[in-house]
Design a binder for these strands. Structure first.
Length: 840
DNA sequence: GCAAGGTC
């Protein structure tokens, strides 16, 4: 029904009977989980090193299921089977409209099919009244709005990924202490960072100035009162001194005017997500990510309404009485609520109606013991805010008394609250009472002291998270649902750090990036960049421009910006050079390079990698773990010294790897054919599953694994590894003596066992044949045999017929029969280019 | 490994 998730975390189906367009009907109701599809590049463009980022601007894109494990598409297709009408109840915003068409696609409904009709329900809150109203005014889904989202997705993807890949490659390949795995760029995250850096630059370039202010003091009714100067402050000491002198010479103040004004402070409008996040950050100390998590949980538990909304206006159908009634017995606010119910609550201030969801309100009463501490604090705020919105405004009287002395004018202000209104439930917003003594026009009072206050202008503080959220909202950066994600993003990429008081302090990396954009193309980090994209796709949404024309037009502009950026990167690099250390000066010597045989340096800062200063090559390593030299062994494929990687955590698994193979896997496209794992049942080398024994040929796994002595060469006891030369003809190869061992072709899985061959004491391996790939007789599935003793294939085939090696009563026995045992090392030969191998 | 947008 909605793009919201049901409580159980599954897309349940509810079924019932009722009336639809005047006829009895059988209804089925189900849901999706946000977008069904997400957009990405085809596999061909996924390899960073093989794709020039500029090609991404013209690359095709494809939609794949956003959450393949949830099988939403299949679910929708199955449930839609046999249905004659499809009613779409997704959020009434642009993204919701786009999801409508994703659902249409999955269900197989056609837009213009008279027999299977598609309807769109427009509603902004889930109340019986609104739902019935929407059901009676069904419309068609808006293709233009959905196309606008398609356009945004394509532009965001291409621009973001192209810049990110280029920057990452360029700077990570040069500096050793950037401390971020990815140097990302995005039309939302980069302007967000831009705001933080802009404030930082204001602070660092700030020049403090001295100023002076006259502050006369008077004694009235035994109290000392300090008066404010009409000139506020002056930046010239001599002039300030002159005024001080004039005032001191006069010594007598005269009350020139008194005024009283009734003023009021309005109750707040309804609470939307952005305001909730701001309060959570500034008053409760929760970051946006955490605030959203807490709010989501409160929503799932039924304590508050849907927490992702832009609207601050309540729908006209909102049931205030019911909501107040739900809180009437609350131990914290029960009395206040009952007061509102009996004295009459106020209609809330009119706010912004974005047409999405009602403001965030309490749905159910809770007390402190029912919730965790942080959840309670957030819930408490939601309740207080809601009660504030239906409370009277705060009213107060503001008194201003004006004085003159020596030709200069001064004043003081008094405040007296007459109606506390909503501030009694939101006390932190209260107007503070300030009493003044009685004055009368024409009163003459002697000054007790005329202070010349010396102050200094101060820079603003770092941008607070709450200020940043305001700036993002004002500039249309992100949505209610994504603002927290963008802030989190720039923290995770190590561009900013959250410091005390939730202030965002940019790091050297964040500052250098923004300064770099500023000197090449300031547009890249200005908030207008998002505005530009929004403005362009608005044309699509309104049906004023063609979707693909707009996409092409915008991408063409960004492509030009990209080319210019690449051309000018030296200017940005000059800033990096001044701030960061080149790879050659980073890290400590760890292992030897297989090309130049000199030590490479291990750079531990993110992303951890090895750098060979002689070859000027970078070899990335697996992240988030520790890396050590592995027994001083070298990889037989490329002579690089092997390393052992241990994943983080006390029980972190470890595996050996070759830094060269890890970066350029020696095999390609054979993952479905051949994977090695001691315990894994899938036959593929799962990350962290089982104990791998041979080089992993999986091109995406990239774990170059080497035999751990379990397959020893019978000639010299060296380690056997998969031979790369002969791929796809699988052979084992000994790096010590160049022995070759033939392996059966078409194996689906090869794994070592704990068994030893009774003939030669070598490790027995198990070979798993997939029926579809095996060249052997039909029905051959799993066989075991010694790879060293005899012709392996014979063993394998004949195991099936019980003729060769076979397992009997748990031990291996030598087979009798055709061929028999042909001596140790048959099937092993010296590495010889002319050597012909048996064709399995 | 990359964007931003849904949502858990």
């Amino acid at each position: 029904m909605l793009q919201m998730h049901s409580r159980k975390g599954s897309t349940d189906v509810h079924e019932f009977e009722g009336m639809f367009i005047g006829l009895p009907a059988y209804f089925k109701v189900t849901s999706v989980i946000g977008h069904v599809f997400s957009v990405d590049f085809p596999a061909k463009y996924q390899d960073w090193s093989a794709t020039d980022p500029i090609d991404l601007f013209q690359a095709p894109i494809q939609k794949t299921e956003a959450n393949p494990k949830a099988h939403i598409c299949r679910h929708l297709s199955q449930e839609a089977h046999g249905c004659s009408h499809l009613v779409l109840w997704l959020d009434c915003d642009r993204e919701g409209e786009n999801i409508c068409f994703e659902v249409i696609q999955c269900t197989g409904f056609q837009a213009n099919d008279a027999r299977r009709k598609v309807h769109r329900a427009r509603f902004s809150s889930v109340t019986g009244k609104d739902i019935l109203k929407a059901m009676n005014c069904l419309v068609e889904p808006n293709k233009c709005e959905a196309f606008a989202v398609d356009a945004r997705q394509e532009i965001d993807l291409k621009v973001g990924v192209a810049f990110t890949r280029f920057q990452t490659g360029y700077f990570q390949g040069k500096y050793g202490d950037l401390d971020s795995r990815v140097i990302s760029y995005g039309p939302c995250q980069t302007p967000t960072l831009g705001f933080c850096v802009q404030r930082y630059l204001q602070i660092t370039t700030f020049k403090p100035e001295k100023f002076w202010a006259l502050r006369p003091h008077i004694m009235v009714d035994g109290y000392e009162l300090q008066l404010e100067w009409e000139r506020h402050r002056l930046f010239d000491l001599d002039v300030a001194l002159m005024f001080q002198k004039l005032v001191l010479q006069d010594r007598i103040l005269e009350v020139t005017d008194m005024s009283e004004k009734q003023e009021s402070k309005g109750r707040p409008p309804g609470l939307n997500t952005v305001n909730l996040l701001k309060i959570a950050s500034s008053a409760l100390g929760f970051g946006p990510q955490m605030a959203m998590q807490l709010a989501e949980r409160l929503y799932i538990q039924g304590f508050i309404s849907y927490p992702r909304t832009e609207s601050t206006a309540y729908p006209s159908s909102f049931d205030f009485k019911g909501t107040l009634g739900a809180l009437a017995n609350n131990p914290m606010w029960g009395d206040y609520v009952q007061g509102l119910l009996s004295d009459g609550y106020h209609k809330p201030q009119s706010g912004k109606d974005a047409g999405d969801h009602p403001p965030i309100t309490p749905m159910r009463s809770a007390n402190e013991d029912m919730l965790e501490r942080d959840a309670w604090r957030l819930y408490q705020y939601v309740c207080q805010h809601f009660l504030g919105t239906v409370s009277p405004d705060c009213k107060y009287i503001r008194t201003k008394v004006e004085f003159s002395i020596g030709g200069e004018f001064f004043h003081c202000i008094g405040l007296h609250v007459t109606v506390k209104g909503f501030t009694s439930i939101m006390p932190w917003l209260a107007v503070s009472e300030k009493n003044l003594p009685q004055f009368a026009k024409g009163d003459k009072i002697e000054v007790s002291k005329v202070e010349l206050f010396e102050g200094q202008t101060a820079p603003p503080d770092y941008l607070s998270e709450s200020e940043l959220i305001s700036l993002m909202e004002k500039n249309g950066i992100g949505t209610d649902a994504s603002i927290s994600a963008h802030i989190n993003n720039i923290c995770e990429r190590n561009y900013v750090q959250v410091q005390a008081g939730r202030k965002l302090v940019p790091t050297a990396l964040g500052i250098t990036l923004i300064r770099g954009y500023q000197c090449i193309d300031p547009d890249l980090c200005l908030p207008d960049i998002r505005g530009f994209i929004e403005q362009q796709i608005n044309l699509v949404a309104k049906g004023e421009a063609d979707h693909s024309c707009v996409v092409q037009h915008v991408l063409e502009q960004f492509k030009q910006k990209y080319s210019y950026f690449v051309k000018q990167i030296d200017n940005m690099d000059a800033l990096f050079e001044a701030q960061f250390s080149p790879l050659a000066d980073s890290g400590r010597a760890l292992s030897k390079c297989g090309k130049c045989l000199r030590y490479m340096k291990y750079i531990s800062s993110q992303p951890s990698r090895l750098y060979c200063g002689t070859c000027e090559e970078v070899y990335y390593l697996p992240q988030k773990g520790t890396i050590k030299l592995y027994k001083e062994l070298t990889c037989p494929l490329d002579n690089f010294e092997l390393l052992i990687f241990a994943m983080a955590g006390p029980e972190g698994k470890s595996f050996p790897l070759c830094p060269f193979c890890y970066n350029s896997p020696p095999f390609e496209g054979i993952d479905t054919l051949f994977g090695v794992s001691k315990t894994g049942s899938s036959g593929k080398l799962g990350k962290g599953t089982g104990m791998p024994c041979f080089l992993c040929p999986h091109p995406t796994c990239r774990h170059s694994l080497i035999a751990q002595g379990v397959c020893a060469c019978p000639e010299c006891n060296g380690t056997l590894v998969l031979d790369p030369v002969s791929a796809p003809k699988w052979r084992l190869y000994c790096n010590m003596c160049n022995c070759l061992v033939l392996l059966p072709q078409g194996a689906h899985r090869i794994a070592t066992t704990r068994e030893r061959c009774p003939e030669c004491d070598s490790t027995i391996i198990e070979v798993d044949f997939n029926k579809n790939t095996t060249p052997l007789e039909d029905g051959a599935t799993l066989h075991s045999g010694c790879i060293l003793c005899d012709d392996l294939l014979h063993s394998l085939v004949e195991v099936k017929h019980g003729k060769s090696f076979f397992k009997r009563a748990g031990r291996w026995a030598r087979a009798r029969g055709r061929g028999g045992h042909r001596g140790r090392g048959r099937g092993i030969g010296k590495m010889d280019p002319k050597m012909s191998f048996r064709d399995f």
